[in-house]
Design a protein around this nucleic acid. Structure first.
Lengths: 231, 231
DNA sequence: TTGTCATTTATTGTTAACAATATTTGACAA
DNA sequence: TTGTCAAATATTGTTAACAATAAATGACAA
């Protein structure tokens, strides 16, 4: 059961984006990737085509592949779609959660809180994402699960761009109450909480100041310092 | 504004599937495609990777690419997801349709009816699909629009597999009433009609007899006749 | 005839070389 | 210094050849 090199690349990039290690706008050079994963460029190319089909990567002809930079309008669309899908998921998950599911989710909340306290952003984001995805699994619809997977990925990019650092992830007590409703089989309550939860997340965004300029790998390493130019 | 060869292939295949000219299970050979579109295999490969990411094509390692054959369980998931998404779309489209939108939709209904009378299945399917997609455009959410595009594509495959030939497409009077509700801005009514419409479509499926065996291009041309074997 | 197996053929997977296109660099002039 | 332009470099796009794998063919034996 070994993954094809192409899947490896796709998954590695998706993971990196989900944990905000790859910010929006980062250039994904073919050479760099084929070196990293020690495979030929053909595989890299196919992987990038897959990611582009999922709208996670933008393919500019003759320029290369870049991590997608969602516009404010796209951000709105994505969160709107997320609400529609997560509400549906909540409705179908209600009453379907096993004891292990509930245990997993409670444990996951602790994990996220710890990561937040420790200042480990990647771990925090990973836990938060797992929370939402686990509920999707409970709902048992693979199509909705895949859609949500794509949307959480893009949400992470949005948070990285438009979130006044810090408010970027979910309020943990909301997760708490969601598990309570899920365990109690309170469908309407669960749907309401899911919707509210996402509205809060979206409300924390700030589109006023333009997103930080797209970075290349070079610029990330050049240490911007305090731009020593001026008059 | 010319399409890249890769996009051409992707769109040609999507169109063919949407009009049921390419049935589920058809093998998509790399050579055949690169000949058809007179491009190199690298482009074909990337196109197939994109289609696989959209779950419209299945990639079997060392075997090639095949038009996806949705299982009954997948069919259920797909229609469930479609209801969730089209309901949301209906809600957002309500009150947003321009006069041209309504005119287009009314015209589209006629077109579909004519195609049906003429026995032109591809034209009928194309019109029906356009109907749903136009409403998605009115709703103005590109994410939901793309999701629906993928789901209608896969729905067509499902209808081709599990529909007792004939009932395969939408009841036209339902489309009529949907346009009425859309034009009147009757949101709740519109959502209800959309949901019902999809339930009717799904109810017409029959999973009892197994889907026709996966076809290769050869078998499609060999003229199956009445299998002259027996005792 | 019918089933099995080795051989042949076709198809997919991989790699490398080359062409076309951007990007960077550095020289030069204002 | 600052702006512009040409040369140099790096990156993406295309193509062809080869290797690995699966499918089809045909010979052979029962």
């Amino acid at each position: 059961m070994k993954d094809s090199p192409e899947d490896q690349i796709v998954n590695a990039i998706l993971d990196a984006i989900a944990e905000q290690r790859l910010p929006a706008g980062t250039k994904l050079g073919e050479q760099a990737l084929s070196d990293l994963f020690s495979c030929n460029r053909a595989n890299v190319r196919r992987a990038l085509a897959s990611l582009a089909a999922q709208q996670v990567v933008e393919l500019r002809p003759n320029r290369g592949a870049f991590v997608m930079t969602p516009s404010p309008k796209e951000a709105r669309d994505i969160f709107q779609a997320r609400r529609a899908i997560e509400r549906t998921i909540a409705r179908h998950a209600s009453g379907q959660a096993s004891a292990e599911d509930i245990a997993f989710l409670r444990d996951n909340i602790l994990e996220e809180a710890e990561a937040r306290k420790a200042g480990d952003k990647p771990a925090e984001l990973r836990a938060s994402r797992q929370f939402h995805m686990r509920i999707a699994q409970i709902a048992g619809n693979l199509v909705l699960e895949r859609f949500l997977s794509e949307l959480t990925m893009r949400s992470t990019l949005i948070l990285g761009l438009y979130s006044p650092t810090g408010s970027s992830s979910c309020a943990e007590d909301e997760h708490d109450r969601i598990v309570d409703a899920l365990a109690a089989g309170a469908t309407d309550e669960l749907v309401r909480l899911a919707d509210e939860h996402l509205r809060h997340l979206e409300a924390g965004l700030n589109f006023d100041e333009p997103p930080a300029a797209p970075m290349s790998l070079r610029e990330q390493l050049m240490a911007p310092r305090s731009t020593p130019n001026a008059k």
